[in-house]
């Protein structure tokens, strides 16, 4: 697990869109900290800091230390609202984590040995089914990424969660089935061309029908 990042925050005494917008105008992003049986706390954090953290991989799988009014709290990001066009963060949800608790986190998947994979060497395409895998673990033992080894994967192979080595105490949230993380599929050049030709013929037919 990587080191936790410190995020200085300011208390937000009043909730609501007016104060939230005022905070955003001042270059801060509103957030809420909840959980661990305590009352929720509304805070604001510098937008610049949050954007920097967002640009690093695995934002939702990293612990942060938020300093509010002299008190430090260990938190895990749970939700994020983004502006649909500007792609600026609008609001964050943070969950307080306490020792001994278990959290479910989406951990990003990292693919190893892509260069030596026989399937990819032969022109196969890595079809990623899950970019991240949700796991249950202790907050202090969240893996940075889940490593999937492609060194023996050939065309037509599927990589399942059962083939991934997880650290002790880390279990996938989906436990009722052996779900797929990625597959290596055959190059689809021939298929795509055939489909295109078919669709072209269909389009011609439909325009003829419309003209009639």
């Amino acid at each position: 697990m990587s080191e936790t990042v410190n995020l200085p925050a300011e208390l937000r005494d009043r909730a609501g869109k007016g104060t939230a917008r005022a905070a955003r105008r001042a270059g801060r992003v509103p957030a809420v900290i909840y959980g661990a049986g305590k009352d929720p706390v509304s805070v604001t954090i510098e937008t610049r800091l949050m954007k920097r953290e967002l640009n690093r991989p695995g934002f939702f799988a990293r612990l942060f230390t938020i300093e509010v009014g002299g008190k430090k709290e260990q938190v895990l990001p749970r939700d994020l609202q983004m502006h649909p066009i500007k792609e600026e963060p609008l609001h964050f949800d943070f969950l307080r984590v306490s020792k001994g608790s278990t959290v479910s986190v989406a951990v990003p998947v990292r693919f190893l040995n892509e260069e030596t994979s026989p399937g990819l060497k032969r022109g196969g395409v890595l079809n990623i089914v899950r970019h991240d895998v949700e796991v249950d673990c202790s907050p202090n033992a969240i893996p940075e990424h889940i490593d999937v080894d492609l060194s023996e994967a050939d065309i037509g192979d599927s990589l399942h969660i059962s083939g991934v080595k997880l650290a002790k105490g880390v279990t996938p949230t989906i436990s009722d089935r052996d779900f797929t993380i990625a597959t290596i599929v055959a190059p689809s050049a021939v298929k795509a061309e055939a489909a295109e030709e078919e669709e072209g013929a269909e389009a011609a037919e439909s325009t003829e029908a419309a003209e009639e």
């Binding site: 022109g123 395409v125 079809n127 190059p187 689809s188 050049a189 795509a192 295109e196």
Partner: peptide, 13 residues
């Protein structure tokens, strides 16, 4: 769609 699939040729989804 055609522009994208033609540019990608044989890979991707």
């Amino acid at each position: 769609r055609r522009a994208i699939t033609r540019h990608m040729r044989r890979v991707g989804k």
